[in-house]
Design a protein around this nucleic acid. Structure first.
Length: 562
RNA sequence: UGACCCGUGGUGUAACUGGCAACACAUCUGAUUUUGGUUCAGAAGAGUCCAGGUUCGAGCCCUGGCGGGUCAACCA
């Protein structure tokens, strides 16, 4: 029962949430309905950690023929803004999920929630407390010591009703009164010690304006919202585990029928070399360590998109790390693997030289240009082919030539032969050195018979180099990104801030040469620069200047060994 | 010195009602390759936190430890 057959015929085991859903389905819970929700607070940008939740919420619904709502958890007007609801929607769509017409806001339920709070008061299960937050906190006790009762705990129902109503008219200043659920100040669960469920806030709400002066707390809004929407499986991260008794308590005391939404917690995403705390991310932006929320080094979805990550790669990544209750440390390497795997199938191959070294083919006519046919993607024949111009003077990578190469260097060196991708085999005859010892130019001869498709095209040489014709090349700005942090766990140090572990070399901007076919490349188009990595066109690109971002390098067994 | 959750190769996951610990990434070979990419073949790597118990048999069940995490916001 906890295994099923995929379309491929391969067995894939279920995660504990899927197993639970299948069990619910089997026992006929909620008449076989599966309904989830993704409940972001519109107070910031979505990041890869949210993507994990999105994939689960929408994924489980889709897998079992259910529905997933998008619900903005907007119960704190001081932190929220429409700007964020728009970006959140765009990011979810980009990831490939659709909530159809089920777009909800917790603020849609303010009226109902207020009525429920009134009900609670009438049942003598809630009271208005006139104390400050400090006083309330001091009475809360500690995890090992019971709390003490508020002096206002035994107000009459009438007085509570009157006060709560007046709290909402703006009669009392912020912070002077709250509504608390009357549960158990001695509960071992701190969340059950008469939790605050309503507070006074004068800040206008991004949707309800200043209709309300009291706003429900998360705990008072979430379970009820789930209930109103018919959510069956309310999936959230592990730190809400201790909230579950309160979630259940509220639902139990307020709802009349049999249906109950059920909260289940799974592990949050932790990624090595990255930070997913909203606060730290905000600091990175504010302190200028990155250029904005969409900086390609950011783990935000907007940043990852700009970096060249595909929605498929992010979904596959999430699929591969799974959902459990274990505090996990995921390796960014797995995310990088996921993009490479996806882009390998999709990205057209092109040639670009990032660190140019001029190479002159001395026996090639000066006035000659040939159009060399080359395949766009060896992984996908349907992507066809194109031509690249070849001429006497080309650029190769500086790293592809060595004056005194080591034994297993399959590239160019004095007297060595190498193939130029889609062109000729050339032989290095000479080279010019600058005063500082740097190689300035390399001189080669070519063998006409070895032209791709020619009579000796199949002659084997040790290496194949990418290149770009010097007179035809287009200059482009290339932004080489690396991990933002140099420490595997930047947020894991007690006395140090993640900022202390910023990788100084997380961005290197260089000017490179790309093949002329790239002239028409559009913003966010993705390519494989052969032998270098995957790159995409940055939105900063203008008709005058192409800008590329390096998404990720290719897997590289050579430099790893050296 | 509380409540709750968790503990399987380097990392992440798997192992149906107990039955030879599997997969992916990473690592290392070798083959193929006009990308030192891809692909293919293979290797190494844990005996499941510890100690007891139940059982013919325990990663799965029980007990007790140990270790990690969460919780004391008028945040979500």
């Amino acid at each position: 029962m906890t295994e099923h057959k995929e379309d491929t015929g391969e067995k894939k085991s279920l995660n504990f949430i899927e197993a639970m859903v299948e069990e619910d389905l089997r026992t006929g819970k909620d008449s076989g309905r599966v309904h989830t929700r993704f409940p972001p607070e519109p107070n910031g940008y979505l990041h890869i950690g949210h993507a994990k939740a999105i994939c689960l919420d929408f994924g489980v619904a889709a897998k079992y023929g259910g529905k997933c709502n998008l619900r903005f958890d907007d119960t704190n007007p001081t932190k929220e803004d429409v700007e964020y609801v728009d970006s959140i929607k765009a990011d979810i769509n980009w990831l490939g999920f659709d909530w159809e017409d089920r777009e909800y806001f917790a603020s849609d339920y303010f009226g109902k929630l207020y009525d429920f709070a009134t009900e609670l008061i009438k049942k003598d299960l809630a009271y208005v407390d006139d104390q400050s937050s400090e006083e309330i906190a001091s009475q809360k006790g500690t995890p090992t010591e019971a709390g003490t009762h508020s002096p206002f705990r035994n107000r009459t129902v009438e007085e509570n009703l009157d006060l709560f109503q007046r709290m909402n008219t703006g009669e009392f200043p912020e912070g002077t009164r709250v509504l608390r659920a009357k549960i158990d100040m001695a509960s071992p669960n701190m969340h059950m010690r008469d939790p605050v469920i309503y507070r006074i806030l004068f800040h206008p709400h991004h949707r309800t304006g200043d209709t309300w002066k009291v706003y429900p707390m998360y705990d008072f809004a979430h379970g009820q919202s789930d209930f109103f929407e018919g959510v069956t499986h309310s999936l959230c991260t592990l730190e809400f585990e201790v909230h579950r008794p309160l979630y259940d308590w509220l639902v139990e005391h307020l709802m009349s029928d049999d249906y109950r939404p059920r909260q289940t917690e799974f592990n949050r995403l932790n990624l090595s070399y990255t930070v997913l705390s909203k606060r730290v991310l905000l600091d990175l932006v504010k302190e200028g360590h990155v250029k904005g929320w969409d900086d390609p080094r950011m783990p935000t979805l907007t940043g990852l998109r700009r970096r060249g990550y595909t929605p498929e790669s992010i979904r596959n990544f999430n699929d591969s790390i799974g959902y459990t209750k274990v505090m996990a440390q995921n390796d960014v390497g797995l995310l990088e693997f996921a993009v490479r795997e996806d882009l390998n199938k999709k990205a057209p191959r092109v040639m670009a030289v990032l660190n140019p070294l001029k190479l002159i083919i001395t026996n090639y006519p000066e006035d000659r240009t040939e159009e060399m046919e080359t395949i766009n993607n060896p992984e996908d024949e349907s992507m066809g082919s194109r031509t690249v111009p070849f001429s006497r003077e080309i650029y190769i990578e500086k790293e592809d030539f060595m004056e005194d190469p080591p034994r297993k260097f399959f590239r160019l060196g004095p007297g060595r032969e190498v193939r130029l991708k889609s062109a000729y085999i050339i032989k290095c005859e000479d080279y010019k050195k600058g005063e500082d010892g740097e190689i300035m130019e390399v001189y080669c001869t070519y063998d006409e018979a070895t032209r791709s498709g020619g009579p000796e095209a199949n002659r084997k040489v040790k290496g194949t180099l990418h290149w770009v014709s010097a007179p035809h090349a287009i200059e482009a700005e290339i932004r080489l990104y690396d991990r933002l942090f140099s420490d595997p766990e930047p947020a894991g140090h007690k006395d140090k801030s993640p900022v202390d572990f910023l990788n100084r070399d997380s961005l290197k901007v260089i000017t490179g040469y790309v093949e002329p076919s790239l002239e028409s490349a559009k913003s966010l188009d993705q390519f494989q620069f052969q032998r270098l990595g995957y790159f995409n066109v940055d939105p900063d690109t203008t008709p005058e200047k192409l800008v590329f971002n390096r998404t990720v390098t290719l897997r590289d067994n050579w430099s790893k060994r050296n």
